[in-house]
Amino acid sequence: MELHENLEEEPNFLVEFDSSVSGAFQSHLKLYKIRRKVSISPCSDLSLWAVLPQTAAEGLAKPLLEKGGRPVVLTPDPRAACMGWRLIIQKEDVAQDVVPTAQVRSAKDYHKHRYQKGIPEGVKDLPPGVALPLESNLTFMNGVSFTKGCYIGQELTARTQHMGVIRKRLFPIRFSAPVTAEGISAGATVLTESGKQAGKYRAGEDDVGIALLQSEKIKVPLYIKTSQGHQVNIIPSVPDWWPKANK
């Protein structure tokens, strides 16, 4: 997101990324700055919060700010309205001091919410070199441009979009029983009743998660095996925020 307000100011941008790959991400950006006088550094003095909506209408409404509360950034989550707003404040501040109606919840609650909505995030859900933009529904989340100049992977992405055939997608799934005790390995195979492969499990929290599945098989009974070899049924769903043509 762009921070400067007029052309006379030095341009500044905030880029959100997975903190587990901070070093690799900064090195990747520096690789492409060439000889430009660009400074790249983490903002250790800031903290990021998600202001999640309780209802669909609430997701579109700007959160009520505390009088005198001054967030660094308060902007709609660009991925989908169901993800509410992104709030960036000084690290020493508390979200409730800025958005008084907010209830501070855990990171686990946040991840469960986005898995229920089918929103992938970070290298766990979108493993580098494995996840493809269109299969990951990034076109639905303002994550792919078909008008800008060249970028790595543009040819494959544009060709797939032009053909209009995307056989696999990331779908939100619900387990028939919580699997936290035994766990399911990332990349575990999703199978049909007859034992045919239907896709791969990506990640989850408690009884919800996301999996890359063949679209034609999401309505048939599916199951996955836990790390202990036990069978757990899964129920995929189509998110209500997807474009109607893709439901």
Rank of each mutant, 00 (worst) to 15 (best):
H28D: 11
Q26F: 06
L29K: 04
P42N: 06
S20I: 05
W49E: 00
T75W: 13
L46E: 10
L65T: 05
P76V: 01
L65W: 03
K30T: 08
L60E: 11
I40L: 14
D77I: 02
A57M: 08
G59L: 05
E58N: 04
P71Q: 03
E58V: 05
S47C: 07
R70W: 04
H28M: 08
S22K: 13
N12T: 12
L60F: 09
L64G: 09
K30A: 03
S22C: 14
T75G: 08
R35Q: 13
R36T: 03
L74P: 12
S27E: 07
S20T: 13
K33F: 00
L31N: 06
G69L: 04
K62W: 03
S19F: 10
F13H: 02
K62T: 08
L14W: 14
E66K: 15
G69I: 00
E58A: 11
D18Y: 07
D77A: 02
L29R: 09
V38H: 02
A56S: 14
K33W: 00
C43M: 09
L52Q: 00
S44D: 08
I34M: 11
E10Q: 11
A24N: 10
S39D: 13
R36V: 00
A61L: 07
S44P: 06
L52R: 01
D18I: 10
Q26Y: 05
T75C: 12
